[in-house]
């Protein structure tokens, strides 16, 4: 299957290795992966901060770059959820609204693409360690993604998935929220991470780099040995 990668701006700039891992995983699943450098950002940072015109500027650029694709895969539930907001973002612009409506259903978060579109869970991955999953809010509550990453992790050789009672609790990132109310943002994260250390996990994994930056930034400050990993990094691990 021909797949176009929407790598997302955060992965592009801060965690490019997640992008490479996503390509690797998609190829292993039999996809022909392309990347169009015309893409920039889904527009969510501005959208969530209330700057809709700025959000439209970014979204237009990315829509234009990707709309010819058959299927578009994103290593992010949050940015995928944003593509579902595109039609509403262009509510007053019939031409762009139509383009947004056409592209939105073609955009897929990585785990749901692998499991629900390709029907593929076995990728020959190997990851020795105990991992706890963080259900990133937008993937979970806007896209309904819950079982897909778990189905994928279940087939990873050597990986033990440790369910944590706070897996659905928000990490406190929330875009500009994280710097507008930093103490609150960190307090929310600390509440989430509570009890995680005692479960003896080696890593906390998720499908959103934004949450992972929040989590790893705090863990590093606390001197924790826990790693924060993207699903793609785990799935790309081991011999192919």
């Amino acid at each position: 299957m021909k797949v176009s990668l929407f790598v997302t701006c955060l992965v592009d700039q801060f965690r490019p290795e997640v992008g490479l891992a996503t390509v690797e995983v998609l190829r292993r699943a039999g996809c022909d992966v392309s990347f169009d450098p015309g893409q920039t950002c889904c527009g969510q940072p501005a959208y969530n901060a209330g700057y809709r015109a700025d959000a439209r500027a970014a979204a237009r650029q990315t829509i234009q770059s990707l709309e010819e694709s058959e299927a578009i895969v994103l290593p992010s539930g949050s940015c995928t959820a944003m593509t579902r907001h595109w039609p509403e973002l262009f509510a007053d612009d019939p031409q762009w609204r139509e383009r947004a409506e056409a592209i939105a259903p073609k955009c897929h978060e990585l785990s749901s693409f692998l499991v629900s579109v390709l029907g593929c869970t076995e990728l020959g991955a190997r990851f020795p360690g105990r991992v706890s999953w963080h259900d990133a809010c937008h993937g979970l509550r806007e896209l309904g993604i819950k079982s897909e990453p778990r189905a994928l992790l279940a087939t990873v050789d050597g990986l033990e998935l440790i369910e944590h009672e706070n897996s659905e609790r928000c990490c406190g990132f929330g875009g500009t929220f994280s710097v507008k109310f930093p103490e609150l943002s960190v307090a929310m994260l600390d509440r989430k991470l509570e009890g995680l250390q005692s479960t003896g996990v080696d890593a906390i994994a998720s499908s959103d780099v934004s949450c992972l930056m929040q989590i790893e930034g705090r863990l590093a400050r606390l001197g924790s040995r826990l790693r924060a990993l993207h699903l793609a990094e785990i799935l790309a691990g081991g011999a192919s």
Binding site: V7, P16, E17, G19, P182
Partner: peptide
């Protein structure tokens, strides 16, 4: 209260 991860040396698009 958090460490900041600096931007990567090479972006994904450059690596691609």
């Amino acid at each position: 209260a958090r460490e900041f991860r600096p931007p990567a040396g090479r972006s994904f698009r450059e690596l691609w």
